[in-house]
């Protein structure tokens, strides 16, 4: 009996000690784009191994959330897969540094059955017509005779922003043809994979066998959404991926920013499937 008491006491001291040590360490929070998230999350793990006193927690929400978290000071590190718009810039008042850590392509994705059924490429106009509700069946596009399941994304998502700007001409354009609204890249990926007739928008790093990226463009000029075509600038829906750091961010956050741009950080960018910037 006495022995267990000692055990508990020792455990308590150990726990308390560990906690006391934790206080001297710093925890940073990163929030925003789920496209940037895999890079930052992996980098945070590696960075923590090298700097055990710095813990970085990472959560998603979308680029809009990442930028809002900078305006409302709810995170030390913001993630965005689109440029900051004018209204947000006014609210940020130059108090945030934008670090471009990678580039990627916003792929136009279709379900495997649609791809196998014959839809390997679409022009921007055709994609726009699908999202505006003017084309409703894959048959009209050389695919299977099936209604098009049009997946739109939440307005706060960077991917939506970039896609709508390139395809519909306005980042906040309405998509009357949309059948459902999705959120994170994971959710979008699952929706496309579970359907036989879906079209959606997804960062090129999230493509797989069930979720196929199609070439975008007219006729023989259509370009596949891959790293090579992002690098030479020929893919029409590509973008920069950003990490946002408030000007008054803790030194540890700034150092993490430098880490993302370092050789090691950029290797993580490549491994995540994006184009490195250095």
């Amino acid at each position: 009996m006495k022995r267990t008491h000692y055990l508990i006491l020792t455990l308590a001291i150990l726990l308390f000690g560990a906690q006391a040590q934790e206080v001297s360490a710093i925890t940073l929070h990163a929030a925003g784009s789920t496209t940037v998230l895999p890079v930052v999350s992996t980098a945070a793990t590696v960075y923590h191994q090298q700097h055990p006193d710095v813990t970085i927690t990472v959560s998603g929400g979308g680029s809009g959330v990442g930028i809002a978290s900078m305006i409302q000071h709810t995170a030390e590190i913001g993630m965005a897969s689109r440029e900051i718009d004018e209204e947000e810039a006014t609210k940020l008042k130059d108090k945030v540094d934008v670090l471009t850590i990678a580039k990627d392509a916003v792929a136009v994705v279709v379900s495997k059955a649609v791809y196998v059924g014959g839809v390997h490429q679409l022009s921007l106009k055709q994609i726009a017509d699908i999202y505006r509700g003017k084309i409703k069946n894959w048959k009209a596009l050389g695919g299977p005779d099936a209604q098009i399941f049009v997946i739109d994304k939440e307005a706060s998502r960077g991917t939506r922003h970039v896609f709508a700007e390139a395809v519909l001409g306005d980042a906040h354009a309405r998509a009357a043809g949309a059948s459902v609204i999705s959120g994170s890249n994971n959710e979008e990926q699952a929706l496309v994979a579970h359907s036989n007739q879906a079209i959606g928008m997804l960062s090129n790093a999230w493509l797989n066998d069930a979720v196929r990226g199609i070439a975008v463009g007219e006729g023989s000029k259509a370009v596949l959404p891959d790293i090579q075509h992002v690098r030479d600038g020929s893919y029409p829906i590509s973008r920069n991926l950003h990490v946002l750091l408030p000007k008054n961010a803790p030194d540890e956050a700034r150092d993490f920013g430098r880490f993302l741009l370092s050789k090691q950080g950029q290797t993580i960018v490549k491994k995540s499937g994006y184009l490195s910037v250095r």
Binding site: G61, G62, G64, V65, A68, I71, Q72, K91, E154, A155, S156, S179, V180, I181, G183
Partner: peptide
């Protein structure tokens, strides 16, 4: 597909500036 009051708040509260 539709929207409820709660799902709308859940989807959009993060991006809306206070």
């Amino acid at each position: 597909p539709a929207q409820t009051l709660t799902s709308r708040i859940g989807r959009e509260i993060g991006e809306s500036a206070f």
